[in-house]
Computed example of a mutant assay.
Amino acid sequence: MKEKVDYIIVGGGIAGCTLAYHLIEANQSVIMYDKLNTQSASRVAAGLYNPITGRKMVKTWKADLLFPYLNEFYREVERRTNQKFLVEKEIYRPFHSVEEQNEWMSRSGDENFIPYINTIHQKSLNENYCDQYGGISLANAGYLNVGLYLSSVRNYLKENGVNIVEENFEVQKLKAYEPLVEYNNIEASRLIFCDGAMSLSNKFFSWLPYKLVKGELLEIESDLSENNRIINRGVFVIPKSKNRFRVGATYENYDLTLTPTDKGKSEIEAKLKELINVDYKVVDHFVGIRPATKDRKPFVGMHPNFNKVGIFNGLGAKGVSQAPYFANQFARFLVNQSELDQEIDIKRYYSLYDGETATFDLNEE
């Protein structure tokens, strides 16, 4: 006899776990396929969430929606799992010049920025920093202990009836024709791919304009003696424990291997030496492939031909901040037929779809 569920979710990283959580909260039954990969982008991510980003220090896209919800969501999951994985810390960003300092002094009274500014420092904050012009301390920031979050949510999902199958999902075995999707001995109302960089080779969604990014990070030991804040300019320095810090990250579009490189290490260290002026020792080196997109907006929605097959992907380096809000929106779309934000809906790329997957044999190797 076939097992019947509302949703099959493929992938158990930040996107898959967060969507599954929202679906079971909406009383939907879920089965998840996720073969643990210690080098997946989610599992090596530093977990930083930051309201002011980029070289030009602009407010993160949709920050006024994303950041209040992420705090509410992660705190709720912490209560339900009896764990603590959201670490609120201000981010200190040194200024490069007096002009930049003056620009932020003028912005400090702007109501659009007030919720995200703690303090404008006009002189050096710490002798261990390279910050002769001072810097800005940002509020509503911090990092997610991604590994603990994922393990906590997986346990919560299992306790609430979600079967997590720790094996690779074989797309060629999927039957995706109306009115249900069928995989092995399971029938589901819908299937959602949350498989990160793997979607680039997925027959259903390979036509979407991904821009995969390799990211390398270092873990260092240092007596920087800074556990109260994250430092971020060129690279971030996140305090993980006493004298241990996570530093990164690189952005590489061409070498997409899961191999740490001397080039990546050198790039991080060069930027680190422009940020702090204390000795350190590199004790570990990580790498992951971020499922980024060409327009830097997530891929959310249903396939143009197979309307029982959907995608929740493309969160790139902002999965921690984007996953909660958009998983909630997508779950409401799936369950209650609510509208999707047009900026994330994959309908914006339907014109790129040539119909090839309308005719491929899903049982063909």
Score class of each variant (00 low, 15 high):
residue 87 V to Y: 03
residue 87 V to G: 00
residue 88 E to K: 08
residue 90 E to V: 03
residue 90 E to W: 00
residue 91 I to T: 09
residue 92 Y to S: 04
residue 92 Y to W: 11
residue 92 Y to R: 11
residue 93 R to D: 11
residue 94 P to F: 07
residue 95 F to D: 06
residue 95 F to T: 00
residue 96 H to T: 05
residue 96 H to N: 13
residue 97 S to G: 04
residue 98 V to N: 03
residue 99 E to V: 06
residue 99 E to D: 09
residue 99 E to M: 13
residue 99 E to I: 04
residue 100 E to F: 04
residue 100 E to M: 10
residue 100 E to I: 08
residue 101 Q to M: 12
residue 101 Q to T: 06
residue 102 N to G: 11
residue 103 E to T: 09
residue 103 E to S: 09
residue 104 W to D: 03
residue 104 W to I: 04
residue 104 W to P: 06
residue 105 M to P: 08
residue 106 S to L: 12
residue 106 S to N: 14
residue 107 R to H: 09
residue 107 R to A: 05
residue 107 R to D: 01
residue 107 R to Q: 08
residue 107 R to G: 03
residue 107 R to E: 04
residue 107 R to V: 02
residue 109 G to P: 05
residue 110 D to N: 15
residue 110 D to W: 11
residue 110 D to H: 12
residue 111 E to Y: 08
residue 112 N to A: 12
residue 113 F to W: 13
residue 114 I to S: 06
residue 114 I to L: 15
residue 115 P to E: 10
residue 115 P to G: 13
residue 115 P to L: 11
residue 116 Y to I: 12
residue 117 I to W: 11
residue 117 I to S: 05
residue 118 N to F: 07
residue 120 I to T: 06
residue 120 I to W: 13
residue 121 H to Y: 14
residue 121 H to A: 13
residue 121 H to S: 14
residue 122 Q to H: 14
residue 122 Q to R: 15
residue 122 Q to V: 15
residue 123 K to W: 13
residue 124 S to Y: 09
residue 124 S to Q: 08
residue 124 S to C: 12
residue 124 S to V: 08
residue 125 L to I: 12
residue 125 L to W: 04
residue 126 N to R: 14
residue 127 E to L: 13
residue 127 E to R: 11
residue 128 N to G: 12
residue 128 N to L: 12
residue 129 Y to D: 03
residue 129 Y to K: 01
residue 129 Y to W: 12
residue 129 Y to C: 11
residue 130 C to P: 02
residue 130 C to V: 13
residue 131 D to L: 08
residue 132 Q to V: 03
residue 133 Y to A: 03
residue 133 Y to K: 04
residue 134 G to D: 05
residue 134 G to V: 00
residue 136 I to G: 07
residue 137 S to Q: 09
residue 138 L to V: 02
residue 139 A to V: 05
residue 140 N to Q: 08
residue 140 N to I: 01
residue 140 N to E: 03
residue 141 A to R: 00
residue 142 G to I: 05
residue 142 G to N: 06
residue 142 G to S: 08
residue 143 Y to A: 00
residue 143 Y to P: 00
residue 143 Y to F: 12
residue 144 L to N: 00
residue 145 N to C: 05
residue 145 N to K: 11
residue 145 N to T: 01
residue 146 V to A: 08
residue 146 V to C: 06
residue 146 V to Q: 02
residue 147 G to I: 02
residue 147 G to F: 03
residue 148 L to E: 12
residue 148 L to S: 12
residue 149 Y to I: 01
residue 149 Y to R: 01
residue 150 L to Q: 05
residue 150 L to M: 06
residue 150 L to I: 15
